[in-house]
Design a protein around this nucleic acid. Structure first.
Length: 363
DNA sequence: AACGAGTTCCGTCAGAGGAG
DNA sequence: CTCCTCTGACGGAACTCGTT
């Protein structure tokens, strides 16, 4: 596979680490399932019989995930190979090295490493779950990285945007934004841009809305939907103030009680059946024109499809970048750990040489 | 303050590869 | 084969920082 996988392989190849204490597992993209996992590796270098090397790999949990499998402890035997490398003698090392050499995607990398290293950590199933659980950033490099000659893992948690899938978005025809809102799409997000976070919708607090109850989100239809025309309230919510006059706001309430809003240009909402196709990202409800006949409707449909594709790709790119960042941080931390390890081994070698020389002199 | 170079972030496109 | 996801590449906008 072209892309980052190749780079990773290259980087791995440059790191002479046979202990493979799976730091990547801590960078896994499923913080909701991360747990406090302490790997205690007791390595007994043959050169210094009475100085076991304690290796601790601490994977910090997120605040939400502490309860999952806290306190798991693994003890892994580490041996030294003929070249002075510490080698973890796990049976799955071969498999993990193979995984590293294949390197199919960030998701797969992290998934496989997670499952191999910490069985308690669930694989990534839904990005929405993963995002929903991430609420903070915490990058922890264990103190031993700076202070002592020990090795281990690390914890990296990524800052992420607020969960974008927790609340459903009704996706309809693109609504032109007022020029003032078009200046920076990355920072100003709101009406008409269904790809953006739903928080914009929640900001619509204008009084001119009618609440609609729907027991089942997946079976929402226009039946029973009521609309009201926005007359530009101009107070309170920024999004409401920026809306063109005549914009229709539809508010509905799901079974779980959460309220949702959708804005549609005046006169368009009647033609749409609202449904939740399985292909859409979780929580996104798409409004599909019914009975397309005219070329204009076909054009609108294709435009809508394109918008949907772009939206999905936008989300995918975001996720991809997030994973990539996480992955790079993992590697950086691992480099720091290995550098420290290398330093320790060098000092160890030096002291052994001195010891040997001293012995040779006395004899 | 104005300017330019460098950096970061984001959206989009294109292509590879997997799943059905 | 088609559809979908993932990710590198690209360009634009915003931001930072040093220089004038």
């Amino acid at each position: 596979m072209p892309g980052f996988g190749g780079k990773q392989l290259e980087m791995d190849g440059s790191i002479d680490d046979k202990s493979e204490d799976s730091p990547s597992s801590s960078g896994s993209s499923q913080p909701q399932n991360l747990s406090t996992v302490v790997h205690t590796i007791t390595a007994v270098p043959t050169a210094i019989p009475n100085q076991p090397v304690q290796v601790q790999s601490v994977i910090q949990p997120t605040q939400q995930s502490v309860i999952q499998a806290a306190g798991q402890i693994q003890t892994v035997q580490v041996e030294e190979d003929g070249e002075g490398h510490l080698v973890r003698t796990d049976p799955d090392i071969e498999k993990r090295r193979e995984i590293l050499s294949r390197r199919p995607s960030y998701r797969k990398i992290l998934n496989e490493l997670s499952s191999a290293e910490a069985p308690g950590i669930a694989k990534i199933e839904e990005d929405k779950e993963e995002e929903a659980a991430i609420t903070s950033i915490q990058t922890t490099i264990p103190s031993y990285v700076q202070t002592s000659g020990q090795y281990g893992g690390y914890c990296i948690k990524e800052p992420t945007e607020p969960p974008s899938h927790q609340l459903p978005i009704i996706y309809g025809p693109p609504v032109p934004l007022p020029p003032a809102r078009m200046q920076d799409s990355s920072k100003v997000r709101g009406i008409g841009d269904a790809s953006q976070d739903s928080s914009s919708y929640k900001k619509v607090t204008a009084g001119q809305t009618i609440q609609i109850a729907a027991a089942n989100q997946n079976e929402l239809t226009t039946q029973g939907l009521q609309t009201i025309t926005m007359t530009n309230a101009g107070q309170g919510a920024v999004t409401a103030a920026a809306m063109p006059a005549g914009t229709t706001i539809v508010q509905y309430t799901q079974g779980d009680g959460s309220q949702q809003f959708v804005t549609v240009p005046a006169g368009e909402v009647q033609a749409y059946q609202i449904r939740a196709p399985s292909s859409l990202p979780a929580g996104v409800v798409m409004a599909t024109p019914t009975g397309i006949t005219s070329p204009q409707q076909l054009a609108e449909e294709s435009a809508r499809k394109r918008e949907l594709r772009l939206m999905k790709n936008r989300e995918a790119a975001r996720e991809c970048r997030r994973r990539k960042k996480e992955y790079v941080k993992c590697l950086e931390t691992r480099v720091a750990v290995l550098e420290q390890q290398n330093k320790t081994l060098i000092e160890e070698l030096k002291s052994l040489k001195e010891l040997y020389c001293h012995k040779a002199e006395t004899e």
